Simulated assay, not measured.
Amino acid sequence: MSAPLPADAIEQRLISVLGQQLRVNVRWGSGVPLVLCNGIGAAFEVFDPLVAALDPATTVVRFDVPGTGGSPNSPLPYGFPYLAVVLGELLRKFGMHGQVDVLGLSWGGALAQQFAFQHPRRCRRLVLVSTGTGVLMIPGRPRALLKMLTPARFLDHQYAARIAGELYGGTVRRDPAIVSQLFDRQLMAGSRVGYLHQLLAGSVWTSVFALPLIRQPTLILAGTDDPIIPVANARLMARLLPHATVHLHAGGHVDLITDARALAPAIEAFRTERNERP
């Protein structure tokens, strides 16, 4: 077990958790830690703009799921229930035995929902960004979804810029190059096997039946110009979750990253609300 480092220290290492090797980054601070779960195929560096926009005193945990960024492939395909157990053990290895807040972006939103369902006492608050309920959700635009089937945009950043507006919507319609710059942050692109494992995990998962059992206060952040996850999914989740608040913005799928300074205050306000879990 690793003892917490002094505030403002950054700890990054590869650790073994239940047979998986995971690259983890922790910015040590104070208060309830915030755990960030990333979108499909993305390494944790993609979250850099958001971390920079958050309260610098906050402990922030980021990690690469198996087969992405600096984490080696999983020996076998996995599902979200297993990955939620892995995340729980990962936090324990860093000495985080108490409550955490969990934020999930896109694919990572499924992991965040699963973690909140499986660890109701450890997850204090839940933030769901540009995400839905899995296979039982309102689908996005077919052309955008087809481009999600391969990791080509992570391997060829110029290609990513060309398709950015159609795929992500929002701020990148005006400045597609921002996506290329975003993916340039990734030190390692991950593997095709890792991407396939993530696709398989999402293809057999839904939270429709579990959401009414998630009692944590939940913030749902959704863009009205999201080609991948239509905004109707945010309204669906809000109806199913007992304690949900919806924050709509005019951006797209990745505006939490590309326009982090505009959206981070909504996350901070939600995390510091005085009302606790009912």
Rank of each mutant, 00 (worst) to 15 (best):
I10Q: 05
G31H: 05
G67V: 08
P230N: 05
D55R: 01
Q20E: 00
A42Y: 01
I267K: 06
H243D: 14
V100N: 01
L136W: 03
Q186N: 07
R215S: 11
V60W: 03
C123A: 11
P6M: 07
E276C: 07
Y78G: 10
A52Y: 00
L199F: 07
R62F: 12
L54Q: 00
H97T: 08
E276V: 08
L155C: 00
A250M: 12
N38T: 15
G31P: 05
L36P: 05
G29M: 13
T218S: 03
P139K: 11
A161R: 05
L199H: 06
G134H: 02
L240E: 04
D175T: 15
L256E: 07
L256S: 06
W107M: 13
T133S: 14
S30M: 14
W205V: 08
D101S: 13
D48C: 11
T171N: 07
L5I: 00
V208I: 15
V51Q: 08
V135L: 14
L187Q: 06
A264G: 12
A260G: 06
A57E: 10
I138Y: 15
N73W: 03
A234D: 05
A264V: 07
S2E: 13
A238T: 06
A110K: 00
V179M: 14
R92N: 10
V127C: 07
I163A: 14
S106P: 09
L136Q: 10
M96K: 01
G41N: 04
R261A: 14
G19Q: 00
A266V: 05
I10N: 02
A52P: 06
N25A: 14
R13A: 13
M96I: 15
G252W: 12
G223A: 04
L155G: 02
F44L: 15
C37F: 10
L34S: 06
P142F: 09
M1Q: 01
L200N: 00
M148W: 02
V100K: 00
Q99H: 02
L211M: 14
I229L: 11
A238C: 13
Y159F: 13
V85M: 10
E166T: 12
A53L: 04
G67C: 06
V86Y: 09
G29P: 04
V135S: 04
L199N: 03
T133C: 12
N73G: 09
Y168C: 12
E45A: 14
F154C: 02
D226K: 09
V208Y: 06
P81E: 06
T133P: 01
A266C: 05
Q118E: 13
G251H: 04
V32R: 09
V86Q: 04
A260Q: 04
L111H: 07
R62A: 11
Q113M: 14
D64K: 08
T58I: 11
V86F: 13
E273T: 11
W28N: 09
F94E: 12
A262N: 03
S30T: 13
H197N: 10
V102K: 05
R174S: 15
